[in-house]
Structures are given as structure tokens and as C-alpha cells.
Write a protein that binds this DNA or RNA. Structure first.
Length: 517
RNA sequence: GCGAGUUUAGCUCAGCGGUAGAGCACUCCCCUUUUAAGGGAUAGGUCCUGGGUUCGAAUCCCAGAACUCGCACCA
């Protein structure tokens, strides 16, 4: 609860009036003048009997609905239909005769002719600035020039703006300001609003699709004492009364599989934030949204089907098509998508068949022969992965499932049923980007212990992102887990692809930035 | 973490060793059927910060900050 102000006097209008010396942000003289002028207008509204920050307005319609409803109204035609609209003033022409009013749905013109407004309202009109939130009540008409308008009888201030909006022709283009002051970006740039609205719809549609398939949505710890389920550096924080360091989760995976063991449901999912303490780039934000699901009695083939269903369904629902343009590249998301093993991809691209390579040393030599840098301690699997990433990955523009990953880079995936060097894992690539990662989940506790021990050995030899031993997770597996398919989808990346956004910050309302000072 | 670039009025940008500029926004005046900005007149600056070179620095040099893009790490 917000703490109540100690002084009842602070509620009085007198106490609310502002003196220029206080509450003034550090700005130039000019900016301070603009702000002071608007504070003066705010007081003038009060003198006219209107609270510049009122409590309620009876808005009867949004702008887009009116534009649609009166689409066929001919130029110069007036109606008797009375509406109340509200939104932000984006432009004032002819001293307020014409006001462009913007709400989240769109724009409508507010027409303020002196014939329809009292002398007092005409005075109030002079107090309206670009940026103010106002409400207008009047009749619907279309001007001779074709602009749908509200012929205003009542004008109300609903939220006085003290700061000037960016110029409307060029808009707000400074990327830093757009991310730091997203509210300004949203006011000025409809495409930013559109992208973030689509984000919301995409997430809602994924959630609905999974719920309709009887997946149970669950929540697992974000604060963990052991950051597992992925290979990444975690954020460290501290719990004061427990007197322990804790980690922000890098993945929910191990907890979700504990729930599968417990049988809370045969299908669970979590759609929420992960945190990784790593570099920031156009494709990486320190906190990002991941959908992870686990389905008992399913394997990675089922997960490929489900990935295709999720992506194509969401594209169809949100965009109305599966054919999309991403930064000038045509991508068709319609399934089914090709499924090709990592070894076959590398073989096709480079001519080198890793299936025929038996030793780690031969694998390293093969990679070097292709001009791929490998460490001296890299094993067959790491060498294969590096060649794939270097030579193949960026060429996979259309959707594809890359299957059958090396065992040693996948400590939580079940051994491949036909090849013990591999695991049943796939990553789905679109535009070269990984948007999904899935396994037939490793359910054998004895094998899982060996995998963790192998990871611990890697950790000892300097890989600080190798997975840690999680005894409780192994204990859970020792009680018995059904065969299980697991799937993770990087939601931000998927949204980038679907909204044609080249930077992850465009699909995150408040991306991580350093404080300015 | 490394490299390159950017930072000048509220916004969008010029200027690149010699008194700080434009458009739009703001303020004032005129104007009530306009369409990115109706007409006119004003005012507005920590040229990112701190050092240095110079008679003189927004401009050149050094250090730092934030941002952008690569690379590294990763999803």
C-alpha cells in the first residue's frame, strides 16, 4: 500500500500549486520556460473550474471504431450522433479549431468551432497544448475535406502535459531516447506500439494454444541456489536473512522436469523470464522470455511437430499469413519443415563426414582443415558443433530442424536410440537463428549422474559454463520419470522474426540499459 | 571485454581553429473549415564531461561517460 500523506492540508488546491523553484528538472532556461508556461496553464484550468488531473471520463468510443463505423459517411455530411472521445493532442491547427486526437486505436479530428462552444470553452481551448490528454463530446461529422471529426460541444482536460513532445515530422528517432523513454517512443511511433502489441498477442496465443492442448501452466523458482538447466553465467544475488548467495535462474528446465516426475500433470509449461549474465547485443538482452514445455510419453519427434504447430498457428493468427518478410528476406513458415541431422548438414556443406571420423584428434584435424578454429581439448562433438556453427548455421534461412547433436554438448538429453555418440536433440533455425531447442529428455538417473560428472570435469578444466552437479535433480530422476519430450522456444527471437524487428530491444518494452549518469 | 562510429536548442540536423546555425516545436500577435507547418514577430545553448595544445577550441590532442554497430560470449 502507498503510505498516506501525513498532512491533510496537502490535499488542498493551494498546497498543490507549484512554485517554479521546486520540482524543476535540470534543464536549460528555455525548457524551463516551456514547462513553466504549461504549469501556468494548468492553474488557469483550475480557475475555469476544471481539475487538470481529474478522476474519470465517460469515453464512449475509441477512434478506430468511429473511423470504421463512419467510413461511408460522405464529405460535408453531419450526423446527430453524440460521442465522447479521449486521447492525446498530437496537433493543433488554427489556434485549436482542428485538433488531432490520438488514442491507442488511432486518430480522430476534434473540431472546435465557436458556434458550438461556449465563450468559456473557447477560453479553455486556448489552454490546450500539444501533448495534453483531453476529452471531447460532440456530434460526428465529416468535413468537406474528408476528415472525420467530432464537432465539439464540451472540452475537458484529462491530463495536463508539462513537457513538449518531439517534433511530429521527423518524430523521435534517437534510439537511446526511444529505449530509455519508451513512453515517448510509444506516443510518437505507431510502429513501436504495433510491435509491442503484437508481442502481447503472440504470447497470449501461445499460451492459449498450450492450454487448449491440456498443458498445465506452472511457475518454478527464479531465485535458485544452483543455476542449472543451461550453459550460461548467472546473475548472483544475496538473501539477507538466509545469509546465502542465490542465482537468478538461467532456465526453468530442471524444476519443470521435477514436476513431471511428481506427476502434477503429464504436460506442463512455463512462459516467463530467464536471466543470463552475458554480453548484450542486437540479439541478446540480459533478461529474456522463454517458453519451456515438457510432455510425458513424447519424444523429440513429437516436439518438432509441436514447434511447427506453435509457430505457424501464431503467425497465422497474429499476422494472417505464414509468408513473412524479415529484413528483406522472404521466409515461409508453413510446415512441415525439413529435419536434417547436424552431421548431414556439415557433410553437405563441407564434404566432411563426421560420422566417419572416429577420434577426437581426427575431428580437430578435420575442423582445422576447414579453417575452423578449435581448442586442443575439443572433443569430436565440440569440433562438429564448431564446424556447424561456422560453416552451416548462417545459411539456414528457411525454417529447419537441425537434429541429433553430439552427446557431450547436451548433458540433459537422452542418448540417440541409434547412435551412442549423439543425443536426441534438435534446434529449430529460422533466418539462421535458433528459435527452439528440444530433446528427448534424459530420464536415466545413472546416465544423468555420469553426464553431470563429465560436466564437472569440464568445469575443472576451465569451462565455467559447464553444468553443475544437481543431486536433488538426480534424486528426483531416481524415483522414476516417464519418457518425456521437452521444448524451449526463445520468445523474443520468435517475436523479432514475426514483427520484422532487427533488434531485440524493439520487442522488449524496457530493454536493459546502463544508467545515464 | 576488444575495435569502429555517434553525442551541438524541446525534436530532427548543419557547422569541423576566428562572435553558435537552420527547420519544426515553444512564447506573443493576427487568424475559425484546416491537412507534415494558416500568417507574422520574438526568444531559446554546460556544443556529453574533465584535462591539454593554441592569441583563440563545438572544431585539434589525451582521458572518461552514454549510445550504436561489429567481434568475443551466448539464446
Amino acid at each position: 500500500m502507498i503510505k498516506r500523506d501525513q498532512s491533510p492540508m496537502s490535499k488542498t488546491p493551494a498546497a498543490q500549486s507549484t512554485t517554479p523553484a521546486e520540482n524543476t528538472p535540470h534543464t536549460s532556461e528555455h525548457a524551463a520556460q516551456i514547462r513553466q508556461g504549461r504549469i501556468d496553464k494548468l492553474e488557469a484550468w483550475r480557475k475555469l473550474g476544471q481539475n487538470p488531473f481529474p478522476y474519470h471520463f465517460e469515453k464512449t468510443s475509441d477512434n478506430a471504431t468511429l473511423q470504421a463505423k463512419y467510413a461511408d459517411l460522405e464529405n460535408g455530411v453531419e450526423t446527430e450522433d453524440v460521442v465522447s472521445v479521449a486521447g492525446r493532442v498530437m496537433a493543433l491547427r488554427n489556434s485549436g479549431l482542428f485538433i488531432d486526437l490520438q488514442d491507442p486505436s488511432g486518430k480522430i479530428q476534434v473540431f472546435c468551432h465557436k458556434e458550438n462552444l461556449s465563450a468559456e470553452m473557447m477560453e479553455a481551448l486556448k489552454l490546450v497544448d500539444v501533448g495534453d490528454v483531453i476529452g471531447a463530446t460532440g456530434t460526428i461529422r465529416r468535413t468537406p475535406r474528408g476528415e472525420l471529426s467530432v464537432k465539439t460541444r464540451q472540452l475537458q482536460i484529462l491530463g495536463k502535459s508539462l513537457l513538449p513532445l518531439p517534433e511530429k515530422y521527423h518524430g523521435l528517432t534517437d534510439v537511446e531516447t526511444r529505449y530509455r523513454q519508451r513512453y515517448l517512443d510509444l506516443i510518437m511511433n505507431p510502429e513501436s506500439r504495433d510491435t509491442l502489441v503484437k508481442r502481447s498477442k503472440i504470447i497470449a496465443d501461445i499460451r492459449k494454444l498450450l492450454l487448449d492442448k491440456d498443458f498445465l501452466e506452472v511457475e518454478t523458482p527464479m531465485l535458485q541456489t544452483l543455476a542449472g538447466g543451461a550453459a550460461a553465467r548467472p546473475f548472483v544475488t544475496h538473501h539477507n536473512t538466509l545469509e546465502i548467495d542465490m542465482y537468478l535462474r538461467i532456465a526453468p528446465e530442471l524444476f519443470l522436469k521435477r514436476l513431471i516426475v511428481g506427476g502434477i500433470s503429464e504436460k506442463v509449461f512455463e512462459l516467463n523470464r530467464n536471466f543470463r549474465n552475458e554480453g548484450i547485443s542486437p540479439k541478446h538482452n540480459p533478461e529474456f522470455t522463454m517458453m519451456e514445455l515438457y510432455q510425458a510419453y513424447a519424444d523429440y519427434n513429437d516436439m518438432m511437430d509441436l514447434t511447427e504447430e506453435i509457430v505457424t498457428t501464431v503467425a497465422q493468427k497474429v499476422l494472417g499469413t505464414t509468408k513473412i518478410d524479415f529484413q528483406g528476406t522472404e521466409i515461409d513458415l508453413a510446415g512441415p519443415w525439413p529435419r536434417k541431422s547436424m552431421i548431414d548438414c556439415v557433410k553437405e556443406e563441407t564434404g566432411v563426414d563426421f560420422a566417419a571420423i572416429d577420434t577426437d584428434e581426427a575431428a580437430r584435424t578435420a575442423a582445422k582443415g576447414l579453417g575452423v578454429f578449435v581448442e586442443e581439448y575439443d572433443t569430436w562433438g565440440y569440433a562438429l558443433e564448431k564446424v556447424f556453427e561456422d560453416k552451416v548455421e548462417h545459411k539456414l534461412i528457411q525454417p529447419i530442424h537441425i537434429t541429433d547433436y553430439p552427446r557431450e554438448i547436451s548433458p540433459l538429453a537422452k542418448e540417440h536410440r541409434d547412435n551412442p555418440r549423439l543425443v536426441e536433440r534438435f534446434e529449430t533455425r529460422v533466418y539462421g537463428w535458433e528459435i527452439a531447442n528440444a530433446f528427448s529428455e534424459l530420464s536415466d538417473p545413472l546416465d544423468q549422474r555420469q553426464r553431470f560428472e563429465s560436466q564437472m570435469a569440464q568445469r575443472d578444466s576451465g569451462n565455467d559454463e559447464a553444468h553443475q552437479m544437481d543431486e536433488d535433480y538426480i534424486t528426483a530422476l531416481e524415483y522414476g520419470m516417464p519418457p518425456c519430450g521437452g521444448l524451449g522456444i526463445g520468445i523474443d527471437r520468435l517475436i523479432m522474426i514475426l514483427t520484422n524487428s532487427p533488434n531485440i530491444r524493439d520487442v522488449i518494452a524496457f530493454p536493459t540499459l546502463k544508467p545515464k549518469h
